[in-house]
C-alpha cells in the first residue's frame, strides 16, 4: 500500500493500492505539477523509485528538481521520459533518461517507460511512483480516444509493476465531455483549485468512500 498523507492529509490517501492511477485535475497554475512532484519526492525519500513522463520540463531540469527536493536521492532511483522531442544532451548523472520524439508518440513513450521501469528494477527499486505531466499537452497531439486508451493500458502496466501513477490535467483546457471521458480511465481523482482569500484547496474523489470536502493544502 502507498501512503500519500504526508503530502496531502486526506484519510482517503492513506492506503492506496499498488496499481492505482490517480488523476490530478485543476485549472492552470494551481500547483498540479508541484503536487505530483511532491508525491514522487515523498516516495524517493522513503526508498521508492520514481518515473516522470514530461512534456514540458526537460530531463535535465527534472533531475535537478528532484535532487533539490530530495538532497540524498540516489540518481538511480529516478527515471525520466522526456517527450519534448529535442533530443537533449544535458548531463543527468545515473538517472534513467529516455527521449521520445513527441508527446503523441505513444509507442515511444511506452518503450521509454519500459526501459525506465527495467532500470529502476535492476537498481533494486521494487516499488515506485510514476507521474505524467501533462495529459493536456498529450491531448493537443492526439485525440481523447487515444489518450483514454493509453491511460488505461498504462494503468494496467503499472498494476503489474506494483507502481502507482499520478497524471495531471488542466481542467480549464478541455470541454466537460473530454474531462468526463479521461476521468473514467482512472481509479480516483485529486481536484485542486485556488482557495478564496489566497492559497489552495483540494478534495479527493473515488479512492475510498464518498468524495471528500474541499480542504486547504
Amino acid at each position: 500500500m502507498y501512503d500519500l498523507t504526508s503530502v496531502l492529509e486526506f484519510d482517503a490517501l492513506s492506503q492506496i493500492r499498488p496499481g492505482s492511477s490517480i488523476l490530478i485535475s485543476g485549472p492552470a497554475m494551481s500547483g498540479k505539477q508541484r503536487l505530483a512532484y511532491d508525491i514522487l519526492a515523498d516516495g524517493i525519500d522513503g526508498g521508492d523509485g520514481a518515473v516522470v513522463v514530461t512534456t514540458g520540463d526537460g530531463a535535465g531540469d527534472v533531475v535537478e528538481e528532484f535532487r533539490s527536493l530530495v538532497p540524498d536521492m540516489n540518481d538511480a532511483q529516478l527515471g525520466v521520459i522526456d517527450c519534448r522531442g529535442d533530443g537533449g544532451d544535458q548531463a543527468v548523472g545515473n538517472a534513467h533518461v529516455h527521449h521520445v520524439s513527441s508527446p503523441g508518440d505513444l509507442t515511444g513513450i511506452g518503450i521509454g517507460i519500459t526501459k525506465a521501469l527495467e532500470g529502476l528494477h535492476n537498481a533494486g527499486n521494487e516499488r515506485g511512483r510514476l507521474a505524467l505531466i501533462s495529459l493536456s499537452t498529450m491531448l493537443t497531439y492526439t485525440d481523447k480516444k487515444t489518450v483514454f486508451k493509453f491511460c488505461h493500458v498504462l494503468s494496467s502496466r503499472l498494476d503489474s509493476a506494483g507502481y502507482i501513477g499520478v497524471f495531471t490535467i488542466d481542467s480549464g483546457a478541455h470541454d466537460d465531455q473530454t474531462l468526463q471521458v479521461i476521468k473514467q480511465a482512472f481509479d480516483g481523482m485529486i481536484d485542486v483549485r485556488d482557495a478564496e482569500g489566497g492559497g489552495r484547496e483540494a478534495r479527493v474523489l473515488g479512492l475510498a468512500g464518498e468524495p471528500t470536502d474541499w480542504q486547504r493544502i
Binding site: 508518440d105 505513444l106 509507442t107 513513450i109 511506452g110 518503450i111 519500459t114 487515444t146 486508451k149 493509453f150 493500458v153 494496467s156 502496466r157
Partner: peptide, 9 residues
C-alpha cells in the same frame, strides 16, 4: 504493453 500501445497509434 508495447504491442498494445502500437495498436492504439
Amino acid at each position: 504493453f508495447i504491442a498494445t500501445l502500437r495498436g492504439l497509434s
